[in-house]
Design a binder for these strands. Structure first.
Length: 374
DNA sequence: AGAACAGATCCCAGTGGAGG
DNA sequence: CCTCCACTGGGATCTGTTCT
């Protein structure tokens, strides 16, 4: 165990006067505390001139310097934030930079601070309103650390997990690209099977006459059909009398004609039945068209192109049922539709699975940080 | 200087009434 | 029964002010 002051050179920066505008007209990185969000920081929002650095005796910190935020630590998003530089930089007075003098690597300190920074901000920062840390406070902290060899292993291990997380993100991104590419191919206009949506769907407007259903649903742009009670928690937006609400069943579609966008036509899958506000346009497919197949069509660029064309020029972005019916669609045989759906739903399942793996790896990293640093 | 704070404004997902 | 239109509460975001 050793103290921070013994192990590290501490340094806090400065802000060149903004009265002199050309001090901020330069190419030297100048880090403010708000930019310390990611593990590594390479570029800064503001840059200063060489003259400004000289006038304010701002040190140019080398690559690999560990920097933390020391002002305004009463805020959740500021407390515990830190980064490591990947380019030479100067810093403002709201930042504190650490340079190793002896036995502790900056990357090791980074992981140590990731674990303890939050508590340090709460327990040790001073000030009545704005909670700040200072040189005197920071230099007295004790840090437990293993030998250099072991530090390197720990750092290597954590960076492997970070790489794994980055790879996982890439896998998910690629699978999503693949899915939309397949949709583009399957749903692009073809000379054969020329048909219109109107020929394969029927509008439904059965009402909740005697108020016997109470599963009030909304159609959200992002999440599709959702329970209204969950969306608005303690607020009841539905009218007291829902007898005019439309009844929808599983596999029915609904959309708000005034809020048309890609993904805003939803298919009911989570519930067997429910009711929606009378302003929604609801419809279901005829036997010749699979609901799953139509749902994927609504994700295609081809469909997007058609609604854009219909919305062009009008002040209100409104898609009536008639206009929807006029949109051309390729409708192959039911067998072929089933194939397309099977293919794409397998892919969707795969994406779900990869997302779960990502979550798991992230949890693993949090857990390890907690276990490894004293 | 820059964070918190406060107020203004926009956006979203709705309501309800008028009128065709 | 459908469309249009004015309106709404709450959250997100933008903008200007206050505070340390």
């Amino acid at each position: 165990m050793s103290s921070i002051g013994e192990q590290f050179e501490l340094y806090s920066g400065n802000t060149p006067s903004r009265m002199n505008k050309n001090q901020f007209d330069g190419s030297i990185n100048w880090i403010t505390s708000g930019e310390l969000k990611e593990h590594y920081i390479s570029d800064t929002k503001e840059k200063i001139s060489e003259e400004a650095a000289k006038n304010n005796s701002l040190k140019l910190l080398p690559v690999g310097t560990f920097v933390i935020a020391i002002y305004g630590l009463e805020a959740n998003g500021v407390r515990g934030t830190c980064s490591i530089t990947t380019r030479e930089s100067t810093i403002s007075q709201a930042c504190m930079a650490f340079t190793s003098k002896m036995d502790i690597q900056n990357e090791f300190l980074y992981s140590w601070y990731k674990k303890h920074g939050n508590i340090i901000g709460i327990k040790y920062a001073q000030g009545t309103k704005q909670q700040n840390l200072s040189y005197d406070i920071i230099e007295r902290f004790n840090i437990s650390y293993p030998c250099m060899e072991e530090q390197k292993k720990l750092i290597r291990f954590i960076s492997l997990i970070d790489q794994r997380i980055a790879t996982q993100n890439k896998i998910i991104e690629d699978l999503k690209k693949l899915k939309s590419a397949i949709i583009e191919i399957e749903y692009s206009p073809k000379d054969s099977y020329h048909s219109h949506i109107g020929g394969a769907i029927v509008q439904i407007s059965k009402r909740n006459k005697d108020n016997h259903l109470c599963n009030v649903l909304s159609v959200s742009n992002r999440q599709g059909f959702i329970k209204q009670s969950e969306q608005f928690e303690d607020r009841n937006v539905a009218s007291d009398d829902t007898s005019n609400y439309k009844i929808v069943e599983k596999n029915d579609f609904a959309y708000n004609p005034a809020r048309i966008n890609v993904g805003s036509i939803a298919r009911l899958t989570k519930f067997e039945t429910g009711i929606v506000s009378p302003m929604y346009i609801c419809f279901r497919t005829k036997d010749c068209l699979l609901p799953e197949y139509l749902e994927l069509f609504f994700e295609s660029r081809n469909f997007f192109y058609h609604i854009q064309k219909r919305l062009e020029g009008s002040v209100r972005l409104c898609l009536s049922y008639e206009e929807l019916c006029n949109i051309p669609i390729v409708i192959p045989s039911i067998e072929k539709q089933k194939q397309v759906d099977l293919h794409l739903s397998k892919l969707a399942q795969k994406i779900d699975l990869e997302m779960k793996i990502l979550q798991f790896v992230q949890q693993q990293k949090t857990y390890l940080l907690h276990q490894m640093f004293i």
